[in-house]
């Protein structure tokens, strides 16, 4: 399965970006092959609003099944949920460590957004 980790860097040695919609970039990691690729977020990073919505849509198109991130708001969560993507919020530290924790079943999927939207 493909999973997505929000990152403030460029590779597996980078840190997890606590932001979802406006994360610097995404690492799309294939849990079967161990391959990964970097997905830029330049467009959504500069969105006037609704960055989380568009990021969620982009990740759905990329075919990921799970997202590992720091925080996820209500609008992004709604889109991810509708796309059948599991959200693992509260993740911090290194990207590789986050992937290991996920593979070892140490993370649990969030039942809802963990932060308020920017408009509330």
């Amino acid at each position: 399965m493909k999973i997505c980790i929000t990152t403030s860097g460029q590779d597996m040695d980078a840190q997890v970006d606590p932001r979802f919609g406006r994360a610097q970039a995404f690492i799309i990691f294939d849990t079967e092959s161990g391959d990964w690729q970097l997905l830029a977020n330049s467009v959504n990073l500069n969105a006037v609003q609704g960055a989380g919505i568009q990021t969620a849509q982009m990740l759905a198109k990329a075919g990921v099944s799970a997202v590992l991130t720091g925080h996820c708001g209500p609008k992004a969560f709604r889109v991810l949920d509708a796309a059948g993507i599991k959200v693992y919020s509260g993740v911090s530290g290194g990207v590789s460590e986050a992937v290991e924790a996920f593979k070892n079943g140490q993370l649990s999927a969030a039942g809802g957004p963990d932060v308020q939207g920017h408009w509330q």
Binding site: Q49, G50, I53, Q54, A56, Q57, V79, A82, A83, W119
Partner: peptide, 19 residues
Amino acid sequence: CYFNAIACLANTTITFHEL
């Protein structure tokens, strides 16, 4: 949508009226 008020997924399209 410039204001990102619509998300289009494979099987559904979601609107965010507040945006």
